[in-house]
Design a protein around this nucleic acid. Structure first.
Lengths: 189, 189
DNA sequence: ACATAAAACTAACACTTGTTAGTTTGGAGA
DNA sequence: TCTCCAAACTAACAAGTGTTAGTTTTATGT
């Protein structure tokens, strides 16, 4: 990994603070203190608080979009596609735990980029749902309510950012494997 | 249902606004405008913004605690207890969708009551985990990682507040039934 | 040793925040 | 009709907000 620029340091520090208190409750003075500088100095590197939020959220959202594009075009079973989605979430979240908190909780504070974010999210969910519907049609999966399946999987995956930091011993592959068992194969005997 | 007091109207309106933008981003002037009055007038009914948050969150948290106490003491299988937990979440969430958003996203802005809230949450999660562990021991469930099972179930249940308002056609019993299928019996064939 | 540019600083701005004090309004019961 | 009180109002506060302008420091390559 290459060295972080000062701007990236600021964005990463901000993501950490946003995770703890949310975008609105973190002031530029909080962020400056965490960086060991004064608030005004931040503006040598960034143009606004909003720019930081945008950098955090849109970067990750586009990563998800790229991952999903690959998955939907793969020539594999729909169940395999679901397992790849699980792996996608585990990997992105493991690499950017703090940013995922903003993506989940502070997207509504995006200003110029709100519409674009919502479009990416909508497309993602539509692709996800379509995989589930195809899986049911192809008899790979039970005839459960597809929307409930997606809801259940997606909310679990979206909450990984809360959980991964607590379990440093578990590596990404193991976690994805465990999640697949629980989410797809069920828990009862 | 009895008529709401003015104070309850304020708290319910606040919960709605907190759901949309989060506690920190909602100003007392926003809340007043939503009530059709001036900010200062709010203080005839409440003593602080913080009191509103506390009223929203602690009320629900205690409801969960009471529900869990009944479940752990019931003489039923551990799988049945899990199903009752699902029903508990569906019912509480259906009755207070907006409040659940604050419980999930704004608990860290509690001041005096933060420690108490964390204690309730901790106890709840410990009870939840213990049921799963007992279920595995009793061979009612597969030998999956108990913490991952709890994490998956709990995050799905905690996110119900996002989903219930979109599906007004589905009643609480149907939803609980569907969730039980997906969460407990798995989705694959 | 010196020039340069990145990155820090001080000081201040216009505005928003939660909250208080004191006053007026409006409607229900006597 | 008068009393009374809940519930609204106006005005203001002290502190905190994101951001700007202009200046000084620090480190690096020549």
């Amino acid at each position: 990994m290459k060295a972080e620029t000062r701007k990236e340091e600021i964005i990463n520090t901000a993501a950490k603070l946003f995770k703890e208190k949310g975008y609105s409750a973190v002031t530029m003075r909080d962020l400056a203190t965490a960086m060991g500088i004064k608030a005004a100095s931040l503006y040598n590197h960034i143009t606004s608080k909003q720019e930081i939020l945008k950098a955090i959220i849109i970067t990750i959202a586009e990563e998800f979009t790229r991952g999903m594009d690959i998955i939907i075009n793969a020539e594999i079973s729909n169940i395999s596609k679901l397992k790849q989605i699980v792996a996608l979430h585990v990997n992105i979240t493991a690499n950017n735990t703090n940013g995922m908190a903003s993506l989940n909780n502070d997207w509504m504070h995006l200003e110029d980029q709100l519409e674009y974010y919502l479009q990416l999210r909508n497309d993602y969910e539509n692709n996800f749902l379509e995989i589930i519907k195809q899986g049911i049609l192809a008899n790979e999966m039970k005839q459960s309510n597809p929307e409930i399946i997606m809801f259940s999987m997606l909310t679990t995956l979206r909450s990984l950012y809360l959980w991964i930091p607590k379990k440093e011993d578990l590596n990404a592959n193991d976690l994805a494997q465990n999640l697949n068992e629980v989410l797809i194969e069920g828990i009862n005997n």
